[in-house]
Write a protein that binds this DNA or RNA. Structure first.
Lengths: 321, 321
DNA sequence: ATGCAAATTTGACTTTTGTCGAGAGCCGTG
DNA sequence: CACGGCTCTCGACAAAAGTCAAATTTGCAT
């Protein structure tokens, strides 16, 4: 390499360009390098989080519907992604919004709990880089054994990477074959400490899974489609951090749940800010369950889902007008 | 106007451009407007604080000198603006850095105390816009009667405007002609409340003034050059929020100070983060006094001043090596 | 030492963005 | 209802930023 473009140099370029408002060629002559290099440094600066470009998510909360949702379900804050055939992919829109909201909620020194799933990974993937100091990202549940693209540890690490934060992975499988083994493993100091540390998080990021054959739990082989169906008839309403919850948002009493290594719901509820993001319209019931269980304080959904939620709330309260 | 380019539209454009990464012409076709309009919206979005571009000030604190200063003077954080003949105006560099640091320190819901002076106004002037919610900017001291460019209320309002925050001005003159009148005015409910509210601030921004004929106090006619000189011989070492302090950073016992309507130093010390910014090298002694008086926890200075401070600290501790 | 590989820098080119003045729509006023 | 004044919009041009392949430099292993 010619001269390692020390972080120092990138920083200087970014500083002159973004803070002082110089043009790239001015920066180039200040630093005695070519303008092309400056352009490259600036890209790096953005990718590293040395410069932060964030757009306010205000308008998505200012929405009337968002306010009504907050009231109806007693949520701290709701963001609604408009699905006005804006962009090619509406679910990307939700993820982009969620990433912005997430970055807005993170503060220096925070401890962040991250679950897994397609939604979480999508968010991690499009999230812009930031240079948070002293941030720790902890994995909320055990890993899936199978090599799978949206693995819990991947979600955790990717988000940690984007934030320039420390990632704390869970070195245990999500689900074990016997309850005894799971219990034993939970008692292991390493695991126990990690589980205990979850309640100390300041912020959690997760989605909720549906109880059907499309669930990642089935795709990863943690449960068969048949077992899933059976659980459904036993009252399973959704999946949170790898655990099956019922319609009230409580852990379902079943063998599977007892074999899982994951954050206790009580620990999750102890987290101040619980950001739940739901992309698919099909996850209506799981979301209701999660809300009922007090598992989310901050919610990001699409307009369509928001409407359904409001309708449901209206019907439930039986108040005409 | 043709169609008020509702904030909504600006926001949408900013969202598509900055969050989704579309090009301006793509945004234009999405929104069915010309690309030129998009460019204009985006500028407005930046000016309004709907989008935030901030560059990390990390590197300025990472400096070895900054660390040594923090240790030597027991400060929370120090930022040093390099004065390597980088830019035309070194003091602008300090102000730009200070503005970034300030924005980094502000949080939603904060209450911010702002003093006045050339430095503070310069910072306000170059500070980029932000869209903080529920932020209140309070004026730390009374106003100068004379129409003067760096008036306390101007500093307060300008910063409030940049932050999209509420500005709380002080409707009293900085200095009165008799001590009795000052005392009476301080007891006025409006004034008393404002003074009492200062200790509740989360963040303060000020500089320190020199005790000489160039002081704004002299230029505004609050004190004559002769009086200033006299105060100097009585031990005046600097000016904070319109008050004269001695070398220990305490309020100097003099008639002038008793006639001033301003934040008590105790209130200032009660503020968690006290950001002091010093541009001029001539303010060495005033700065020492302010530091001695515990009036700053966060400091932004130029490299030259930083060196002088370190030399002083080294000499004071008499430790060779 | 010497050469290879990787990474950085650069100049030239293309694409994207910023800006200006002209024009058009809206509003209050005479 | 015509008229200025105002702001917003658009097209066209100028400026700036992004990009690529080639050249250069450097680190490292042989």
């Amino acid at each position: 390499m010619a001269i390692r473009p020390a972080e120092q140099l990138i920083h200087k370029a970014a500083w002159l360009y973004y803070a002082h408002g110089l043009r790239q060629d001015e920066v180039a002559s200040q630093l005695n390098i070519s303008r092309a290099s400056v352009a490259m440094y600036l890209r790096k600066a953005r990718e590293t989080g040395i410069v932060n470009i964030s757009t306010s998510t205000q308008l998505f909360t200012d929405d009337v519907m968002a306010r009504r949702l907050e009231d109806a379900f007693d949520l701290g804050a709701v963001w609604i992604a408009p699905e006005n055939a804006y962009l090619a992919d509406p679910s990307t829109d939700i993820a982009v919004l969620a990433a912005s909201v997430f970055l807005e909620l993170v503060k220096k020194g925070d401890r962040i709990g991250v679950a897994w799933g397609r939604t979480v990974y999508t968010i991690a993937d499009i999230m812009s880089y930031a240079d948070l100091q002293d941030v720790t990202v902890v994995q909320l549940c055990g890993n899936l054994g199978a090599p799978y693209s949206y693995r819990p540890d991947q979600c955790t690490m990717e988000i940690a990477r984007r934030l320039n934060a420390k990632g704390l992975n869970f070195y245990a499988p999500l689900v074990l074959s016997t309850e005894d083994l799971a219990q034993g493993l939970r008692a292991e100091p390493v695991i126990r400490d990690q589980l205990a540390g979850i309640a100390d998080c300041d912020l959690a990021l997760y989605s909720v899974g549906a109880v059907d054959a499309d669930s990642h739990l089935v795709k990863c082989g943690a449960l068969s489609a048949g077992e899933m169906e059976a659980l459904r008839s036993q009252g399973a309403a959704g999946v949170i951090a790898g655990q099956i919850i019922d319609a009230k948002g409580e852990v379902l009493d079943c063998s599977y749940n007892r074999r899982v290594i994951s954050a206790e719901l009580a620990s999750l509820r102890a987290i101040e800010k619980r950001l739940m993001v739901v992309q698919e319209d099909t996850k209506f019931e799981p979301l209701l369950a999660a809300i009922a269980g007090g598992l989310c304080t901050h919610l990001v959904v699409g307009a369509h889902m928001a409407e359904r939620l409001l309708q449901h709330a209206g019907a439930a309260s039986k108040k005409a007008s």
